[in-house]
Design a protein around this nucleic acid. Structure first.
Lengths: 358, 358
DNA sequence: ATGATTTGCGCAAACGATTGCATGACCGTA
DNA sequence: TACGGTCATGCAATCGTTTGCGCAAATCAT
């Protein structure tokens, strides 16, 4: 459209060389110039509506002041607060972010890495890594990377994650305190670090509390969504008649699980207690009000961005390899003591459903 | 970190000039070369792991294959689906997007326009415009712009919006059909086109149905959020005792309104019917299940992106100035016939509340 | 065989900024 | 007065790619 005013135009206008203009406009080099020239140049630059072209600068300096942000899917309400957290750190430092959605598809992820690198991003925050990511280490040799919310173990790539283990442990304790001795688990996808770590934590906590969990009471979801939560909960409930509580690896699974409970003619929490993880937005408004592990979504993003900033500006600076953010339990209404005599009632409910189905 | 392989390296390796490499790699110019050279160059380029530097290309061509996306706040669940819709059109066309949040702050918006233009975006999709946006026309002379979900009237800037008027009209009809004759409105912010258009549609529909709405039954919110919904609903309910239904300009206001109804000791929908607009994610799970106007969030983003694509690739192409997307009513459980004898019951409820407060 | 076209590729100038080095003016000192 | 040293600014190369233009060789028409 309209061609914009360049450093050259400002130079011609003020009667100095372009190098002088460049220096006058650069905070670092400004000191090399006399105060009057700097003032004059900045004035006319403003008057002419000069806007630095970071593309041109980036070509020379190899810094674009742009970072790449990879997330699985922005419509998953877990991620927007994380993204805002990143922006909160990045924007004041002068960085903008290119945002891409991987849909948890490794091929797509590979293409998107290229998309980012072609555009010369100065760094990448990856909130979409899979547990054994094939690309990450290669990419991390080209540009600084920090993973957020998830990690790839043993990679040496800095990550900011939540205290998954602690959250699960606390939640198990809560259920135990309420009287539950037969607790099931809907685990997250086995290729995501959160799925793995929460599952391991579940098993460790069960052992610590001296609970045995049958194979049928633990079922792992393919994806973190409501349908999978429903499917897995149905499976667990049907095959583990004595189970009185379902600890789910995240809120969306838990929402699906609550539906499953209802579809079996049972009630949450009276018949089955259900718990979530993450405390996503609006969760408090959805009945029965899931008791969940609250993570600091915004701060996970913010801290990840801060670590990336450090790595970008001081490549030799040492940054913590994994930062673990604290979690807390939000108590709502999805935990109740196990119903006495629940076993028999449940069994009939389940049988009646099976009958109508088969 | 590691310096990457350039067109020059490929040229040296294959023994041709850089210009030849450039042509061999460009889909348009490829025809100028013999098939063998092209094949050889592409092969070795691949083998060497050549990755085009779009920054350098962009400097020359003034096209970065990057667009800017402005939204008010990505944590507002209305926007993620819109953003995904944009991406669905943009990514296949080779564009990546820089996403920024304005928080509906004009100063911030102005800064962010600069952030985008400095990075040489080829176009901007603006889902954060205010009704009389001071920057937009100036910016639109530098780079193609399309507004999404909102518009700035009379600007000539292409926009993709929803059939706000139609949605409101249909919803008014629904309430009228249910027997409501005394309907209030919580209007959206008066500096947003959605707020204005929905309010005007409300007034027009009321007139069309021969309903009078008292001043007190229509209150305009400062922002689209639950707290404002609550505050405005309280005001309307307290000052309009005969009102039996509240048509809200969006879902978040409606959620707040439902809370307000409850806090007055009334029930929705038995005592007061409440309706929303947008059908944001998870709305179906929040009691009592708001009847709302569903908009095609994903498609609004997608179509806006498609129009922008057209404007970017064919600057002289004519595009529709405003595209209006169809809406539909999603019926849930927040509309009921007005309760007979509701007036008196309500009045007592309100008075008792006033008593405890004042 | 000659001239006119076409084909295939190289040359070099851009694009807008940054930055190491050179240069000239000015100062103080010997 | 000459000399060394600062200080402020100019010069020109550079980043990686694209592209108008030119040139030589190949092809064609006559």
């Amino acid at each position: 459209m309209k061609k914009s005013v360049t450093i050259k135009d400002v130079a011609r206008e003020t009667g100095v060389h372009v190098a002088t203009v460049s220096r006058a406009l650069s905070p670092n080099a400004r000191a090399l110039l006399s105060a009057e020239v700097v003032a004059k140049i900045r004035e006319t630059a403003n008057a002419m509506g000069y806007r630095p072209n970071r593309i041109a600068a980036g070509l020379r300096t190899r810094r674009t002041m742009t970072v790449g942000v990879m997330i699985p899917d922005i419509t998953n309400t877990l991620f927007p607060p994380i993204v805002r957290g990143m922006e909160a750190a990045l924007e004041p430092a002068g960085y903008a972010s290119i945002l891409v959605n991987t849909d948890n598809d490794p091929d797509r992820e590979a293409r998107l890495f290229d998309v980012l690198l072609q555009r010369g991003v100065d760094g990448i925050i990856d909130a979409a890594v899979t547990h054994m990511d094939p690309h990450l280490e290669r990419i991390s040799r080209e540009v600084p990377i920090v993973t957020a919310n998830r990690m790839v173990e043993g990679s040496g790539i800095p990550s900011v994650i939540n205290d998954d283990a602690g959250g699960i442990r606390m939640m198990m304790q809560k259920l135990h305190d309420a009287g539950h001795r037969n607790i099931g688990h809907i685990a997250g996808p086995k290729d995501l670090s959160t799925g793995i770590q929460r599952r391991e934590a579940f098993e460790a906590a069960a052992k610590g509390l001296d609970l045995k969990v049958s194979d049928t009471a633990m079922v792992v979801a393919e994806r973190y969504n409501e349908d999978e939560g429903n499917r897995c909960a149905l499976s667990a409930l049907e095959n583990s008649p004595d189970m009185t509580a379902l600890l789910c690896a995240n809120d969306r699974l838990a929402i699906g699980a609550v539906d499953a409970v209802a579809s079996l003619g049972l009630k949450c929490p009276e018949d089955i207690s259900v718990t979530g993880f993450n405390d996503i937005p609006f969760l408090d408004m959805i009945p029965p009000g899931l008791t969940t592990v609250q993570i600091l979504q915004f701060d996970v993003g913010r801290i990840a961005a801060e670590i990336l900033l450090k790595r970008m500006t001081e490549p030799d600076a040492r940054v913590p390899e994994t930062t673990i953010m604290p979690v807390s339990i939000i108590e709502r209404n999805s935990i109740a003591p196990p119903r006495s005599g629940r076993g028999s009632k449940t069994r009939t409910a389940r049988q009646s459903r099976k009958k109508t189905q088969g």
